[in-house]
Design a protein around this nucleic acid. Structure first.
Length: 553
RNA sequence: GGGGUUGUAGCUCAACUGGACAGAGCGACGGUUUCCUAAACCGUAGGUUCCGGGUUCGAUUCCCGGCAGCCCCA
């Protein structure tokens, strides 16, 4: 029995001829109001010419026997379900594949664009957000049945490669060149860039020449560039492996080089782009979006152009329903501009979505080498592992467990906030193991696993909800599919994280306050079933956040 | 100067998009030896939701005007 349907038909019976498709039933805000509530009688009151409370009373008359209803306050409909109804719902949830997550994405395709670090630089804590938030959205969409193509749009082209090639040749030892690492690339970049900037005009020119040679396809430079990018990807993948992140494609900016002139030609052809001071621009000032440069006065292209080329390529190759970009919120104007231009170029069948997140800072400053506040991602993960290993080893836990817990803590610390929130990095917060943290959830899962193991085989048994603790947990479990859907619609994994934390709290409370194994058999079995369902949902939910669930802690 | 974004408990954040008495975690204070675990549970204290208007049955949420921080553009 669908509560929303039932309440809607009561509305229709009370006020025939009106449209009540917006009417919805939501969980009660407080258990003392019942199990569910509907606030929409208040909204339709004016339309049907009644006082709010009278409208609610009239709807209540048509609710029927199946559901206990009370009209409270100005006109809230408070609904209380029967234990049988609850048991039935739990049954269908337990029987449903993937914990009842609706397959609304079946047959639909989405491209996800996230992480996207720059080649030849090491990943640092500033890269966590795009990677972890993007990956969670990726996983959530896959769980809804969408076909997701996860693409890593690397920063693998541009002026830095002239500096790098010069630096590689002049600033590294033979040994460093033979055993090239990203750390070495970073080092020679810093040295070379410093020379080009402050001291040496000839050095600067040499860098530019190397860049031009690369752009013109010089075999040596091209080979070096390929090597730099390959080494970078290798290192990124080491991090992604730890974080449980996997990309379908690695198409960096360079992939779109050849398509740029075509994009510009097209923009001119349809009259969007025009000359201005030697540069080619698209004027978006009537949309209050300023001016976007699509070709600089020196003939170079920039992000707007390569992103447009990229959209064109993705539309042609995949025909996705939407493309989701997860980047920091400094790029909002850029995305608004290029989305607007893309629409005018005729890419109207694809929904372009920018998910902006608050930039991560450290000690109040943007993270950069210059500020000297750069913590490498590898360091962070090592420290996370070290801290959890200290606790875990006393319990006989191994390194794998320490990684699951440490990395889980790092990811959860990020995912549990609304993406829009800016985070100032803090070791203790990023690696929290208590309270609203990843390990708290992992711990709850381990507890339920142990309990079920100890219980052994449980015979066939129905759900039976009697106590308040059980009921609150049960009602909460029924909300899981809805939480996943809401997280996807808002592009906010934090909605799911928050749901899981609340659920685990209710479980812990239930677990501490209700004897399970020691109860007489029918109660024991019914409670074990509830535990099992909780375990399934927690495991599924955490997997959507990319957080592992060890069975023993 | 124009635009974006944020402002909620001492600190870090929620609040299912307009619902009932604004909730969690951390920190503080007090308590919990029965199932497979104290990474937990139970309780206490802590609020002018930045300020001022407006919209309505009802505003942390929407609108207008300020203030403050961060960011982008010129």
């Amino acid at each position: 029995m669908d509560l929303t349907q039932l309440v809607r038909s009561a509305f229709t019976a009370a006020f025939p001829g009106e449209d009540f498709s917006q009417v919805k039933v939501v969980p009660a805000t407080d258990p003392k109001f019942g199990d569910y509530q509907c606030n929409d009688a208040l909204k339709v009151a004016k339309k049907v010419g009644l006082k709010p409370r009278d409208a609610a009373l009239k709807v209540a008359e048509h609710i029927g026997e199946a559901l206990k209803v009370e009209v409270a306050g100005p006109g809230f409909l408070n609904l209380t379900v029967s234990p049988d109804w609850l048991a039935g719902e739990l049954d269908s949830l337990a029987a449903a594949p993937s914990c009842g997550i609706p397959q609304k994405g079946k047959g639909r395709r989405v491209v996800m664009d996230y992480s996207s670090p720059n080649a030849a630089k090491q990943m640092h804590i500033g890269h966590i957000r795009s990677t972890v938030i993007g990956n969670a959205i990726d996983r959530i969409f896959r769980s809804l049945g969408y076909e997701v193509i996860a693409d890593n749009h690397l920063g693998d082209w541009g002026t830095q490669f002239g500096i790098l090639i010069k630096g590689y040749r002049e600033c590294l030892t033979q040994d460093e060149r033979d055993n090239l690492t990203v750390a070495n690339l970073e080092k020679c970049y810093v040295l070379s860039a410093a020379k080009a900037k402050d001291v040496d005009e000839t050095w600067k020119n040499a860098c530019r020449e190397e860049l031009v040679k690369l752009q013109q396809g010089d075999p040596d430079n091209l080979a070096l560039w390929r090597r730099f990018v390959q080494i970078s990807i290798g290192e990124f993948e080491r991090m992604y492996l730890k974080l449980g992140v996997k990309f379908d494609t690695y198409r960096g900016e360079s992939y779109y080089n050849a398509m740029m002139p075509g994009v510009v030609a097209r923009l001119i052809e349809i009259g969007l782009a025009k000359e201005s001071d030697g540069a080619l621009i698209v004027d978006l000032s009537d949309e209050k979006l300023g001016v976007a440069i699509v070709r600089k006065s020196d003939g170079g292209y920039n992000y707007t152009t390569s992103d447009l080329a990229c959209v064109g390529n993705r539309v042609t190759e995949y025909a996705p329903e939407r493309i989701i970009y997860v980047t920091d919120d400094r790029q909002q104007l850029h995305f608004k501009q290029f989305f607007s231009i893309a629409k005018k170029m005729g890419y109207t069948d694809v929904k372009l979505v920018h998910v902006p997140f608050g930039l991560m800072s450290y000690q109040g400053k943007a993270i950069s080498t210059r500020e000297g506040n750069l913590i490498r991602l590898e360091e962070l993960l090592a420290e996370a592992k070290r801290r959890s290993l200290e606790i875990v080893k006393d319990r006989g836990g191994d390194e794998a467990l320490a990684e699951a817990i440490g990395y889980g803590a790092v990811k959860y610390a990020d995912l549990s906030h609304d993406p829009a929130t800016a985070i100032d990095f803090d070791w203790d917060k990023a690696l929290a193991l208590e309270g609203n943290s990843g390990p708290y959830l992992q711990y709850a899962y381990a507890r339920v696993c142990s309990l079920l193991e100890k219980a052994g085989e449980v015979g066939e048994c129905d759900f039976a909800i009697s106590t308040q603790h059980e009921k609150r947990l049960a009602l909460q479990l029924l909300e899981f599919p809805g939480a996943v859907v809401r997280a996807a619609e808002a592009y906010k994994p934090s909605i799911l994280a928050d749901y899981l934390f609340q659920t685990a709290q209710l479980y812990s409370s239930f677990y501490q306050n209700s004897p399970i194994l020691k109860s007489e058999e029918s109660v024991r079995n019914a409670r074990l079933r509830l535990c099992a369902l909780f375990g399934e949902i927690l495991k599924t939910g955490l997997s959507l956040l990319g957080i592992e669930t060890p069975r023993h802690i």
